[in-house]
Simulated assay, not measured.
Amino acid sequence: MAQSEDLYAIADFCLVPIGTGEPSVAEYVAECVRVLEKTGLKYKMHGYGTNIEGPWSAVMQAIHDCHAAVHAKGAPRIATDIRIGTRIDRVIEPGTGNDHKVKRVEEILARDQKA
């Protein structure tokens, strides 16, 4: 991999608005999803966060833009946990990284069922 090439990243992040005075953060999460929809990156929400994948710089920019949008919506503070994985031992077809990881585990479990 060339030094100037962007790493392909598979990230999981959980953005938590703080100080909104509301028991639900759904409106703020929806604002973040609106941002993600515009990125063109593959993402998938789950109950406690969002998986997103693509070039490292684009993934980081998307998370930054979510922060900016949620602040603009009125959240005075935001705490975000991020886990990021990269690999250079094989080529990851863009948009397939997280699905491949899940599929691999499902294949192992299916094999166990047959045994």
Rank of each mutant, 00 (worst) to 15 (best):
L36T: 06
I63S: 03
G49P: 13
L7R: 15
A79T: 06
L109C: 05
K42P: 04
A9R: 04
A58L: 11
I10A: 12
H67N: 10
D6L: 03
T80Q: 08
T80H: 14
A62D: 07
W56P: 05
D12W: 02
L41W: 02
C66K: 10
A11D: 01
A75P: 03
P23H: 11
G19E: 02
A79F: 07
T39M: 10
S57G: 14
D12S: 10
V91D: 08
R34Y: 00
H100W: 08
R34C: 08
N51W: 14
H67W: 05
P23D: 14
D112R: 14
K38L: 03
V105L: 14
V70P: 08
P23Q: 10
A72L: 02
G74Y: 06
I10P: 10
D112A: 07
C66V: 08
D112F: 09
V70A: 08
Q3E: 14
A26I: 03
G40N: 12
I82F: 05
S4G: 13
L7H: 14
K114V: 04
S4R: 08
P76V: 01
R90E: 11
E106S: 12
P23I: 03
V59A: 02
G95N: 07
K101N: 10
I63G: 03
I10H: 00
Q113I: 13
R77M: 07
L109Q: 15
M1A: 13
G95A: 12
G49N: 03
D6Y: 00
V16R: 13
K44N: 13
D112K: 13
K38Q: 12
R111G: 10
G74H: 09
S24W: 00
C32W: 01
R83Q: 11
D99L: 07
A79C: 09
G40I: 09
Y43C: 13
A79Y: 07
I78A: 08
I63A: 03
G47N: 15
Q3I: 13
D99W: 06
V70C: 09
Y28A: 07
M45Y: 07
G85S: 11
I10K: 03
P55C: 01
G40P: 09
D99T: 08
A72T: 06
V35I: 14
P94T: 09
F13L: 09
Q113N: 06
Y48V: 15
T86W: 07
E5W: 00
V91P: 03
A72K: 13
G85F: 02
A62H: 00
V33I: 09
Q113Y: 06
V33T: 14
I88N: 05
G19S: 05
A30I: 04
F13I: 01
E93D: 13
G97V: 02
D6P: 00
P76F: 01
G21F: 06
D112E: 08
T86Q: 14
T86K: 06
W56I: 04
N98C: 14
K44T: 11
L109A: 10
Y43L: 02
G85V: 15
Y28K: 06
T80Y: 11
V102H: 01
V33H: 09
G54N: 11
D65N: 15
H64N: 11
I84T: 13
I10Q: 09
T86V: 15
L7S: 15
R77H: 13
A68G: 01
G95E: 07
I52Q: 07
E37T: 02
Q61M: 02
C32F: 00
V91K: 05
E107D: 14
A62G: 04
Q113A: 14
P17L: 06
H46T: 04
E106Q: 05
